[in-house]
Simulated scan of single mutants.
Amino acid sequence: MDEDIIKKNNDLIEDSLEFCADIYEYYEADDINRFKNNYYKKNKQIQRDEAEKVIIVKEQADEEAGFKLYAKIVAVILAAMILARLVNAYLIQETIVNGSSMNPTFESSDKLLIDKLFYKMGALERYDIIVFHYHDSSIYIKRVIGLPGEKITIRKGRVYVNGRILDDDPLINDVMHYSGIAKNGVKLGKDEYFVLGDNRNNSYDSRYEQVGVIKQGSIIGKAWIRIFPISKFGAVN
């Protein structure tokens, strides 16, 4: 009798312990899962926050890089414009031939580059082609024939320098029909030049009183390079 009771009690105790073990295992597993879920949720939120920070930083960096690039482009354009103005004002200028007074050397619409600086490092020479102001509103292009201090005379269609015929004139065979102010000779001052167009009988030049001799201060520059038409590209002679 006593043994049966003891056995039943032992069975009950074992069942109770097993039940408690199951309960403990269940809650322990639940806590772990809850911890894991909380950890993963928290970790994901941290990752999202970090990703948003990275995106914001990248956007700010892109904006700064874009602004710097824009600023550089503007600076380059402004520098190029200023440089172009300086070059045009003091070094080189483009000009377009208008008319036939310099035929056959130049045709109308030929484009030339004018040296405005370097030619000043030496004296202009006879037969140089220069560009100069005419009455402040027009620009003429002609060939230098008479130099400072010389006396230029045109007789029988030929050019004489200080009483001697200019026999190396490349256009000596083009007999001029009009002598103008050079008929009786023109004495040039220390800063004056006598110019003629290469189309001698169709050129408005120093022979005409309205043009006259060219002062040094009126000269813009010396014809340097023909840039158009391309087929005739090259140095000007």
Rank of each mutant, 00 (worst) to 15 (best):
D4T: 13
D4I: 13
I6H: 07
I6Q: 10
K7R: 14
K8Q: 12
N9R: 11
E14S: 13
E18L: 14
C20N: 14
C20D: 14
C20E: 15
A21S: 15
A21L: 14
Y24N: 11
Y24F: 13
Y24W: 13
E25P: 01
I32G: 02
N33L: 13
R34Q: 14
R34I: 02
N38P: 00
N38H: 10
Y39C: 13
Y40P: 03
K41T: 15
K41D: 15
K44G: 05
K44A: 15
I46A: 11
I56S: 10
V57N: 15
V57H: 10
A61Q: 13
D62G: 01
F67N: 13
K68H: 00
L69Y: 02
A71Q: 08
A71D: 09
I77W: 01
I77P: 04
A79L: 15
M81W: 09
I82W: 04
I82C: 07
R85M: 10
L86A: 07
V87C: 14
A89Q: 02
L91R: 03
L91Y: 05
Q93S: 10
Q93P: 00
Q93G: 11
I96Q: 08
P104V: 03
P104K: 08
F106D: 05
F106I: 07
S108W: 05
L112S: 02
D115N: 11
L117Q: 05
L117M: 02
K120G: 00
G122V: 04
A123K: 11
E125A: 06
D128N: 03
D128I: 06
I129K: 03
I130G: 00
I130P: 03
V131I: 12
V131H: 03
F132Q: 01
S137C: 02
S138C: 08
S138Q: 00
I145A: 07
G146L: 09
G146R: 09
L147W: 01
L147D: 04
P148G: 06
V159C: 12
V159W: 05
V161P: 00
L166H: 03
L166P: 08
I172M: 07
N173S: 09
G180L: 08
A182K: 08
N184R: 11
N184L: 02
G185H: 05
L188K: 09
G189P: 04
K190R: 12
K190M: 10
D191F: 04
Y193V: 07
F194C: 04
L196G: 09
G197D: 05
G197K: 03
N202V: 07
R207A: 13
R207M: 14
R207F: 08
E209D: 12
Q210F: 08
Q210G: 04
Q210L: 09
V211W: 04
V211L: 12
G212H: 02
G212P: 09
V213H: 04
K215Y: 01
K215L: 08
G217S: 13
S218Y: 10
S218I: 02
S218L: 08
I220T: 00
W224Q: 01
I225G: 01
I230S: 05
G234K: 06
V236K: 06
